[in-house]
Design a protein around this nucleic acid. Structure first.
Lengths: 223, 223
DNA sequence: CGGTAAGTTGAGCCGATTCAACTTACGTGG
DNA sequence: CCACGTAAGTTGAATCGGCTCAACTTACCG
């Protein structure tokens, strides 16, 4: 759940009406940070853990917009409202920033420039995601996804690189515009090709990063 | 490539070191404003006309990221570079702004806030587009697309609303993650359902906006 | 009026989905 | 610590939506 020590500490230190001051809090696994339609009072920078941003349709379909890792900023408003749900996939520490830091003239220029950079980065990342959703085959999607995670959270393991999938198949599928079955099949395919190994459902060992990267941009899933 | 006449003109008129001044120029139909990989020195606000932002894969596949209409801002940098191509689909007038207005402390605060708003709006629009690409069927995609154009550039025609498609089937297909044939078939379907009428390939008359909107969020293309 | 590009339509195919059975992983309580 | 129950993930078979390829029609421009 919440880390009491940090919250308690903050309470003592927090001065009222210090709108642009950063505050740290933690979010238990599965907890929501905000929901679509909530009005935006603060935006957040992830310090550790993983968040999932998603949008839900009335009929139950879901699109996972992005996963946010340490350093990523989430919660940018549009018309003053949140346009996604935001949930923690892992215990997560976040730093919150008054939304007025974005546009109000009095805000810290350094912070504001930093937030603008984060927004620009997000736009660029989303453009990549468009190519993924619009152009790529199931195999390319899954391979691309693994490559991007590899870059974000890969750690060396002998001559290979490993990482944990912090999200369920479910989330991967809704992120890539596929079904869980298809994601599973593609992971199996990559495993049988000898490009990855799976130790449990979450732990991925990348055996051939170059080939994997090649598959991520190769129309026919053969290379 | 670049339009020589316009560039020549700019060279004469440009005063050095007037970084934040807005400049207006026009772009002929089919002309490019910038290319993926170009370094970003200025960003642009559309005054009239239509721009297409797209990204090209090595193997020829293309994703149209967005269409920009009057009021939209394009050209946001990431790592100082453009990450899309940008081309005019119609004769277009654009106002250009020095990119330093985004982040430099000395920049006009009003302008900067405005640009931040534009960036936030873009993020929100892209989230909608994700849902489109990731969740929706061909029929929903085309219907959604028509609805959004209707809102952007619809004009009354008796009891109906009409608009011109400023882009080719080609562009629509690459925007929606479909083929031109599928786009064509869906337009035909909507026509046969009596929701729209087509006068030539570009001119659309929306006969039943409510039904069209309903189809835009209905899994089975029946309603 | 002819030529070319753009758009439409049709037939057959293929990749991803659906639906269902099965396997594995995991947390709980005996 | 094992046994069980549930949730998550995998695999298979059959279906279907959108794609490919090809022919045809329409619009546009010199």
């Amino acid at each position: 759940m919440h880390a009491p020590s940090i919250l308690a500490e903050r309470k003592v230190l927090a001065r009222p009406f210090a709108p642009f001051e950063a505050k740290v809090r933690s979010l238990g696994e599965g907890r929501s940070l905000y929901f679509e339609g909530d009005s935006v009072s603060r935006i957040y920078r992830v310090k550790s853990g993983v968040l999932r941003l998603s949008r839900l349709l009335e009929d139950g379909r879901r699109q996972v917009i992005s996963f946010a890792f340490a350093g990523d900023v989430v919660g940018f408003p549009s018309q003053g409202l949140h346009h996604t749900d935001c949930d923690a996939l892992r215990p997560t520490q976040i730093e919150s920033i008054d939304v007025r830091a974005l546009t109000e003239p009095g805000a810290d220029p350094m912070l504001r420039a930093e937030l603008m950079q984060a927004a620009l980065q997000e736009i660029s990342d989303m453009q990549d995601h468009f190519v993924m959703l619009g152009c790529k085959s199931a195999c390319e999607k899954v391979a691309s996804f693994l490559v991007s995670l590899l870059k974000q959270c890969g750690t060396p393991l002998g001559q290979y690189t490993q990482f944990d999938l912090p999200m369920a198949r479910n989330d991967i599928a809704d992120f890539l515009g596929l079904t869980i079955e298809t994601v599973s099949r593609m992971l199996t395919k990559l495993r049988k090709l000898g490009l990855i190994a799976l130790d449990g459902a979450q732990h991925v060992i990348v055996l051939d990063a170059d080939q994997l990267d090649a598959l991520a941009n190769c129309r026919d899933g053969s290379l």
